Computed example of a mutant assay.
Amino acid sequence: MNILHVTFMAATGIALAGCDVSETPSTPDTAAAPESGVTREAVTAPQDETPVARMPAQVAIQSQPGPDGAQVDLMKVAVTGDILTVTLRCSSDEKINSESFDVQKISVIDDATSQRLGVLKDNAGEWMASNVGGNSLNTECEIKPGVIWAKFPAPPATSKTVSINLPKVGPFDGIPVTR
Rank of each mutant, 00 (worst) to 15 (best):
T85Q: 11
G13T: 12
K168M: 10
F172T: 04
A157Y: 03
V52T: 13
A78H: 10
V169N: 02
A17I: 02
S26H: 13
A10V: 13
S22F: 07
D73A: 11
G37V: 00
S130N: 06
T39P: 01
Q62T: 11
K151M: 14
V147D: 04
G37F: 01
T39L: 09
C90E: 08
L137K: 01
K121W: 04
F101S: 00
V147C: 00
L120V: 02
Q104P: 08
I3L: 13
D68N: 15
S159L: 08
K76H: 11
V169H: 00
E126P: 05
P46Q: 09
P28T: 10
T87G: 05
L84E: 09
D122V: 03
L84S: 09
A17W: 05
D82H: 12
D73F: 04
E49M: 13
G133L: 09
D82R: 14
G134W: 00
Q104R: 15
L4P: 09
E23A: 11
D20N: 07
A42K: 15
P176T: 00
V77G: 09
V77C: 11
A33G: 03
L88A: 04
S98D: 15
G18W: 04
L120A: 07
Q47C: 12
I96R: 13
G125I: 01
L88C: 07
C141H: 00
M128I: 05
I109Y: 08
T12C: 15
A53C: 15
G118R: 02
A10P: 06
F101M: 01
A53M: 15
I143P: 02
I83Q: 15
I96V: 10
T7E: 06
A154Y: 03
G174D: 02
A10S: 14
R40V: 11
A154R: 05
L117A: 12
P56A: 08
I143G: 08
S130W: 05
N97S: 13
S26M: 10
V79P: 01
M75A: 07
V59W: 03
K121D: 06
S100H: 10
H5F: 11
V162P: 01
V169A: 02
A17E: 01
